[in-house]
Design a protein around this nucleic acid. Structure first.
Length: 927
RNA sequence: GGGUGUGUAGCUCAGUUGGGAGAGCGUCGCCCUUACAAGGCGAAUGUCGGGAGUUCGAACCUCUCCACACCCA
């Protein structure tokens, strides 16, 4: 084996072999266990969040597979309507072609062509990450099977009256010309203005303070053409008398009423709000309450339409805004303009300001679907982890809006609706089906709805449509009710909830039993990773490494603003002066698992990754040691006689505890604790102690073959078990090593992937050995402490004496002489009986027993006094606290007996310790 | 404004039913000891955000205040 761990050279060949052998596909006859991948956007690439979620999903699926389950991790991607269409349109634009030039059919051919070329990016990344997904079952939301399911669902929901066509306000992208979902709208605070407009009162009315106008404050002057009323708070005394009166809308000359509505905040602005029901979501609601007309003043491009005075028609909304303000000013109706911060809704894709816009769209009436979806979580059929998120789910489900599912795009599932010349719609599986279903004449002209469905509509069917539904296939039966969904909290609404609704509706099953919500991976400073901030880390760069120049190039590529690019470059060079090293997939996966503690935000710290890369190296080197000492030797595979040492029994016992801890952590979705338990066991028990304890046996010329076999057997067996235990989190390293170690451990199998997952065995726990090793460690650490504090080189052999030891101490000493000599580097050990003289020594306490290191020539008197004083102070502080506790009568009276007894014992120990240390100090001082 | 969450060592974070404050990284000292310097051994480090309450006992439960983050309006 190489001297250091080189992940690059082992990882991909192993993956290739796994894939070729078909290990990822469901197999065996165990109970089914499935995870459906949240289908990534086909235009994208995997980011840290994906790497995080995939690491967890793969860990789960690998463990269940090893436990003998028939596992399916379903891969696939979604067709990402807008994003994909835009990518292809941009390519066409480079050749000066629009999609309209091509026409729908040709354009869609181009999209499929593009998908064929670029759609593989994500699968390639997943292979690098080691994802054990069933590639032969990979699905795309535009596959024919998915399309059939989508159509089936649409038609059935329509026939039940759950899908309907209606006119509502939607988020309209005036550049892309489509409705978009709330998710695709990003509202962020921007600097703007609040304009104060005077609206003259009609019919000679006056305000309470004698003015002939009221003042409305608005951030969107141009929408005033669509004003339907002015609203005031019902309890606002300033305007009580004006409710029911009218104002004359300037520039338009229309009379609009003054109404009272709860929506208005008295304190905000002037207390008078212009209500534009066709162009604002809140106003729409107000308008509905007061039966106001919906006056749409925009075209699809957000230009002023014919409902506004002629002068303004055809103006862009922002040009119109300027002109309206100027005209108000000219009329003396502009009271003031103040700076104002406001949330501006922008489209995620084109950064266009999104317009609330009145259009005909298809909707899903969600009320009847929501009820069972809420119940499924209430009654525990579906559980969120961490449980906290159930509240988020409920709060959204209780306040549901009907779901707008149509999009004015070409790329997506075309809506199976046809219109006759009068615009009446018919829904069915095909035009023929529609004619038959509705009894339409063969010569009646029908045109199909041009629009497509929201991408989320098809992803909502993901768990069952991927498994063959509407056919009752075996896969559907086995896997469609999946076990765990792993996803981020940002799509609980958009995806998780909708999946639950649709799946319950059409299959009467839940889509998943557990929803594990991951935290959001942030950069080292706690900022969200985003392209525009230039702080994105590509998981593949952590795995394969990247030099600083390439990293800067990658991060600033395509940045429009040079100033921003400069800043990004500076930050990048500061944070990664040397670029990023290659840490390997296993280290990354293990790191990500160790960060999965259930928190909301996760700062990604490269030091952590480095630490776990070092852990990989530690495992690697421990293996080298094991192989050096076991290869070509008898490790008991063939049943040779084996005698287990104390260390052997101890590490076997500790392994049971580790197995227990890891399994418990997995079962409770605490992957951080599982990682911690693996780390702790491997590094601090197996490597730090057990390997060292194995040396005195293996290097003992007088060791019997049975003793040698016992230790070799334990070395390989415990390592082999650890590899299986760790495999779900670090698949490559463990496979590489397992291939060599398993035969020595007498374990057969082609791959660790299909080996059994370790479970603790109660019978292998050995409390006596654990106590004995604790004693051994106490002695060794005592001596090491003296060495360290006194600056005695580790290489210098020491003579030590044991004083005031019990029979048990003596027995332990005799049994473990070799261990002690090797690990504490001792020349001689002398047992002192009562009354024996001891030289002046530095002392370590192990229980009541004193371990003495003679000072002559080694130890400075003052230094030893100082060291003892430090120990005394520490013990005395503890003692003081405990004595205080015990002298408190109510503590002794009311605390549980066991607690009191424990404190008493501790108190006695400390007293003894302090007195011994004091004694020792005094005797040195008297020298 | 409404809701949710977070605040523990210099940094990143654990802390399971209230009963001895922990880990990793970093820091300091010693050491190339035949698996590993991506290492070994040893050491230092905390008014557990502030305050009040419940309790024999609070990092943990209750209230309140402060700071920060996110979601919704």
């Amino acid at each position: 084996m190489e001297k250091t761990y080189q992940p690059q050279s082992i990882e991909q060949p192993i993956y290739q072999r796994w894939e070729d052998e078909g290990y990822f596909s469901p197999q065996g006859s165990g109970a089914p266990f499935s995870i459906m991948i949240p289908p990534p956007n086909v235009t994208g690439s995997l980011h840290m969040g994906h790497a995080f979620q995939h690491s967890l999903m793969d860990a789960m699926i690998r463990r269940e597979r090893m436990k003998g389950k028939r596992t399916l991790w379903q891969p696939g991607s979604d067709h990402a309507g807008i994003a994909t269409q835009m990518v292809v349109e941009r390519q066409l634009a480079a050749q000066n072609i629009t999609r309209h030039d091509l026409g729908r059919e040709k354009f869609l051919e181009k999209v499929w062509e593009w998908k064929g070329q670029s759609g593989g990016t994500i699968s390639d990344q997943m292979r690098v990450l080691g994802d054990s997904v069933a590639w032969d079952k990979e699905r795309f939301t535009m596959d024919s099977g998915m399309s059939a399911a989508v159509q089936e669902v649409f038609v059935r929901l329509f026939d039940e009256g759950i899908i309907y066509r209606g006119q509502r306000l939607v988020n309209w992208d005036p550049v892309l010309h489509t409705a978009i979902s709330d998710l695709e709208v990003i509202s962020e605070e921007e600097n703007g203005f609040m304009w104060y407009f005077r609206y003259p009162l009609a019919d000679g009315e006056k305000t309470a303070d004698g003015k002939d106008h009221i003042v409305v404050a608005t951030t969107r002057p141009e929408t005033m053409f669509g004003d339907a009323a002015v609203a005031v708070a019902p309890d606002d005394e300033r305007f009580t008398d004006l409710v029911g009166k009218f104002v004359e809308l300037p520039l338009v000359g229309r009379r609009i009423p003054i109404v009272a509505d709860e929506y208005v905040d008295k304190e905000f602005g002037t207390g008078c709000v212009k209500i534009t029901p066709a162009h604002d979501f809140n106003d729409y609601e107000v308008g509905k309450r007061h039966d106001m007309p919906l006056i749409n003043i925009f075209t699809d491009d957000a230009k002023i339409n014919e409902n506004a005075p002629e002068k303004y028609r055809g103006m862009d909304r922002f040009d119109a805004r300027k002109v309206v303000v100027e005209d108000f000013d000219g009329l003396g109706l502009l009271e003031k303009v103040v700076d104002h911060k406001l949330k501006v809704p922008r489209g995620e894709r084109g950064n266009t300001v999104i317009e609330p816009y009145l259009t005909q769209q298809w909707y899903v009436a969600v009320e009847t679907l929501a009820k069972p979806a809420i119940e499924a979580v209430e009654n525990g059929d579906i559980q969120f982890v961490p449980k906290q998120w159930e509240n988020t789910y409920f709060s959204w489900m209780r306040d549901l809006q009907d779901w707008c599912i149509s999009r004015q795009l070409w790329w997506g599932h075309q809506i199976p609706a046809w219109y006759d010349a009068e615009g009446k719609h018919y829904v069915g599986m095909s035009e023929d089906d529609v004619r038959a279903k509705y009894g339409l004449a063969a010569d009646l002209e029908l045109t199909r709805d041009e629009d497509v469905l929201d991408t989320w509509f098809s992803s909502a069917l993901w768990t069952f449509a991927t498994q063959g539904w509407p056919e009752e296939t075996q896969d559907f039966k086995d896997f469609s009710e999946s076990d765990v969904l792993v996803t981020g909290f940002d799509i609980i609404f958009f995806w998780v909830a909708r999946m639950i609704m649709m799946t319950l509706k059409f299959t009467n099953k839940v889509p998943f039993k557990t929803v594990y919500i991951t935290g959001l991976i942030r950069d080292e400073r706690g900022d969200k990773m985003s392209k525009s901030k230039g702080n994105v880390i590509d998981p593949l760069d952590l795995i394969g490494g990247i030099d600083i120049e390439s990293l800067v190039k990658k991060r600033t590529y395509g940045m429009m603003q040079p100033r921003l690019a400069e800043k990004v470059e500076k930050n990048t060079r500061e944070t990664y002066p040397e670029g990023i090293q290659a840490y390997g997939t296993d280290a990354l996966r293990f790191t990500l698992c160790s960060l999965a503690s259930g928190g909301r935000d996760i700062k990604f710290d490269l030091n952590r990754l480095e630490g776990y890369r070092n852990f990989c190296n530690k495992i690697w080197n421990a293996t080298r040691y094991v192989l050096m000492n076991t290869e070509d030797q008898d490790c008991g595979q063939n049943g040779a006689e084996a005698e287990l040492s104390l260390a052997d029994k101890w590490i076997i016992s500790r392994l049971q505890h580790a197995e227990e801890a890891v399994n418990r952590a997995f079962d409770t979705h605490r992957y951080d604790l599982a990682a911690q338990a693996l780390y702790e066991f491997m590094w601090h028990e197996y490597c730090d102690w057990y390997l060292e304890l194995s040396k005195p046996v293996l290097w003992d010329e007088n060791a019997t073959p049975a003793q040698l076999t016992g230790t070799r057997r334990t070395l390989v067996r415990v390592l082999e078990a650890f590899l299986r235990l760790a495999h779900p989190m670090m698949p490559f390293l463990t496979e590489e090593i397992w291939q060599r170690v398993a035969p020595l451990a007498g374990v057969e199998g082609e791959t660790i992937m299909l080996a059994s997952y370790p479970e603790a065995e109660e019978a292998k726990k050995d409390a006596q050995s654990e106590a004995d090793v604790e004693w051994l460690k106490g002695v060794i650490e005592g001596v090491r402490n003296i060495r360290g504090e006194m600056n005695i080189a580790p290489s210098k052999p020491l003579d030590v004496l044991f004083r005031n030891g019990s029979e048990q101490d003596k027995a332990r000493l005799e049994a473990n002489l070799a261990f002690l000599q090797k690990l504490a580097k001792l020349e001689t050990i002398t047992w002192l009986n009562a009354g024996d003289e001891a030289p002046m020594s530095a002392t370590a306490l192990v229980g009541d027993m004193e371990v003495l290191v003679p000072m002559a020539g080694l130890i400075d008197k003052d230094a030893e006094i100082a060291r003892l004083q430090k120990e005394i102070d520490k013990a005395a502080k503890d003692l003081e606290r405990i004595e205080g506790k015990l002298s408190n009568e109510s503590f002794v009276a009311k605390a549980p007996e066991a607690v009191v007894a424990k404190e008493r014992a501790k108190c006695d120990d400390l007293k003894l310790m302090v007195s011994k240390l004091e004694e020792q100090k005094a005797s040195i001082e008297s020298l």
